Simulated scan of single mutants.
Amino acid sequence: MTPSDLLHALHSGTPVFGTLIVSPSPRWPDAVRSCGLDFVFIDTEHIALDRAELSWMCQTYTALGLPPLVRIPSPDPYTATMVLDGGAAGVIAPYVETVEQVQALRGAVKLRPIKGQKLQRMLQGTAVEADLQNYIEEGAARRLLVINIESVPAMEALDDILAVPGLDAVLIGPHDLSCNLGVPEEWEHPKFLEACETIFRKARAAGVGAGIHFWGDVEQHARFLKMGANMLIQSGDISLFQKHLRLELAAVKKAAGMAAAASSDESVQV
């Protein structure tokens, strides 16, 4: 899938699937590309990746047909420009709550390379030269702008946010959103589920992609798709490694007759 393919899928409602990748290991891309993904999500908000590592990862995944979407540490247009210069197919901006933030990110992602006063005039609706307009539109079709919706204020401003031109998708950050709603990590709580459904519904009605990054079970992921999501980021490399290693070690211990002994030891310690 190319970045343009991904952009079209998000706006048309076609489901696309990715996963969180934080390992810069050179062996990782070859393993990841055979997993049936449409794109990869690289996080620099919570994970320490330097600029050179990030650029290498972006260039490699792009060459493998897995457009890399990079979450930047804050909704900062200058950082957005930096990761795009490094090879990112698109930017995910965390904890966005205002139209002004989205407009600034739009300028960095969709109207590049324009800067300064000319950029501000364009963001205000001033027309530019036809050749420049065509050049900008051609580039914008290959770069994605995604924002995290992670709070009640973001939901309250969602209608206006979705009306900003050039926004390709909104992505729910479930941990922050559930905490902001007052129901931390209560994934089955009606308040959390209603918020997710509202975000998905409004985004799709606006022709904008609707996504979530989640690490729960298969039934929970399927439910989000049925609720209207068309961008699913399934868990991440660290979480998947931890989950499957636990399962395999437990199976090995059980097969070796060690499970009962381990349970007995734990009960004694308690």
Rank of each mutant, 00 (worst) to 15 (best):
A48G: 09
L49N: 09
A104D: 09
K118T: 10
M155L: 13
G257F: 02
P75V: 03
G86P: 04
L69G: 01
R143N: 11
V99D: 04
A260I: 13
E194A: 14
A259T: 01
L245F: 01
P190D: 09
A163S: 12
A163D: 12
V32K: 07
S235Q: 04
Q234C: 11
A260S: 14
T62C: 07
V102M: 02
I47T: 11
W28V: 08
V22Q: 08
V91L: 01
A63H: 07
V91N: 03
R201A: 10
V91P: 01
V270F: 15
A255V: 13
M227A: 09
A140P: 14
E53Y: 06
L20S: 01
Y78S: 05
A88S: 03
A140K: 10
R246G: 15
G36Q: 03
D160F: 08
L144I: 11
L225I: 11
N134F: 07
G173I: 02
T14A: 15
S74Q: 14
L66R: 07
G173K: 05
S239L: 11
G65S: 05
G173E: 02
P77N: 10
Y61H: 08
Y78K: 05
R223T: 00
T79C: 06
Y61M: 03
D5V: 01
A259I: 00
A261H: 14
V170Y: 07
T44V: 14
A261I: 12
Y135T: 15
P67S: 00
D50W: 03
V128D: 07
R121C: 11
L240A: 02
A31N: 09
I21A: 08
S12I: 04
E186R: 13
D265P: 04
G13V: 08
P113K: 08
C179M: 10
D50L: 09
P24A: 12
L132R: 15
L167N: 03
Y61I: 11
A250Q: 13
Y95T: 06
A195S: 09
W215L: 00
E194R: 12
I47Y: 15
G86N: 14
V40Q: 08
D30P: 00
G18C: 12
D5C: 02
V109Q: 13
T19E: 12
P29C: 07
K118N: 04
V270T: 04
E129C: 07
S178I: 00
C35Q: 14
A130N: 07
D265G: 15
C179D: 07
N180T: 09
G228Y: 08
P184W: 09
E194T: 11
L247T: 09
L84V: 00
G125D: 12
A255M: 10
